[in-house]
């Protein structure tokens, strides 16, 4: 399915919940993520964030960039905090108000994984958006378990030797009703997924690729472009998992060589031809695996 702008009500201009004046870096992929997600969920939602660049984007007290009730929880408890709100809303008979947790890859893959797993196990009622910039960018670019193999960070100066943790598989294993990947390179698809998630009850998870220009060493006008290349090279395919079992690929990529994605990013500047080849091999394997899981459907 090719996402279409016509079918997306939130894509209409003038629907922004996020106001101007955010304090992120110019061209920040994360600020774009936040703008699109909030536009899709609408102003009648409660947002939970944790320490990350989101707290920078939000602006310093008493300024507030997002026109929604907004709770800045502790690093590892986005999910538990969102669950506390959604249960309290239930006893106040206000369960129609969506609760959105917004955490980075560090707050999701690493320090927040226990809290997220607990909440997903209980099928707590919230949408969890993990904006994944593949490292601890707010503290100045350190490796996380979402950092891809071979990528440079401040704590992997010769390249990351670990593999990127498969967070979608982990979430699927909890059998949550809805999990989806999204990319700011495909904004309509992203917003449609947020709106689809809004109409489902239980734990809903969006894995959103969201480049950090500084950490990825790309020019400040490149975040959407690189996010598109991630999808088109199958590094980051767009798909959904329903009830942890049913996979559906949302976009059949052009299947471009991974080198087109890697070569535009300074964090991969040191790669050898062998390393690029091994990334290509692993990307092809994962794509075949995903196609098989989706029963060849797209």
């Amino acid at each position: 399915m090719q996402p279409s702008a016509d079918s997306c009500e939130a894509c209409t201009p003038g629907m922004d919940v996020m106001r101007s004046g955010h304090t992120a870096c110019p061209g920040c992929g994360q600020a774009i993520s936040m703008r699109l997600v909030l536009r899709a969920i609408g102003a009648k939602a409660i947002v939970v964030t944790v320490p990350s660049c989101v707290s920078v984007i939000a602006g310093p007290f008493p300024y507030a960039v997002a026109n929604v009730p907004y709770y800045h929880a502790a690093f590892e408890v986005a999910a538990a905090s969102a669950a506390g709100i959604s249960n309290a809303l239930k006893i106040q008979e206000k369960q129609d108000i969506p609760v959105l947790a917004f955490a980075g890859d560090g707050g999701t893959f690493d320090i927040g994984l226990q809290s997220l797993s607990g909440a997903a196990d209980r099928n707590e009622d919230f949408i969890y958006v993990c904006y994944d910039n593949e490292g601890y960018m707010n503290t100045g670019i350190q490796v996380s378990s979402a950092t891809p193999t071979h990528a440079w960070t401040g704590t992997t100066p010769t390249g990351n030797t670990r593999r990127k943790k498969q967070i979608m598989e982990i979430m699927a294993a909890h059998r949550i009703p809805y999990a989806a990947t999204a990319s700011i390179g495909f904004p309509e698809d992203l917003m449609q997924k947020i709106q689809k998630a809004r109409d489902i009850r239980g734990t809903r998870f969006i894995h959103l690729l969201s480049p950090c220009n500084t950490g990825w060493k790309i020019p400040e006008n490149m975040a959407p472009k690189v996010s598109t290349l991630a999808v088109e090279t199958n590094i980051f395919p767009l798909y959904e998992i329903t009830d942890g079992l049913h996979y559906q690929i949302n976009y059949m990529s052009k299947g471009l060589p991974v080198e087109e994605y890697l070569s535009v990013q300074g964090r991969y500047a040191h790669l050898t031809p062998e390393q690029i080849k091994s990334i290509q091999t692993e990307t092809d394997r994962a794509w075949r695996d995903l196609k098989q899981k989706s029963g060849g459907q797209s």
Partner: peptide
């Protein structure tokens, strides 16, 4: 009320905090 059977005390307190801020 609602009993939340948490996966740790840390999360228990986190849920209590956000629920209290919601007004519960």
């Amino acid at each position: 009320g609602i009993m939340m059977r948490m996966e740790s005390e840390h999360s228990s307190m986190a849920a209590c905090i956000s629920a209290s801020l919601t007004g519960a």
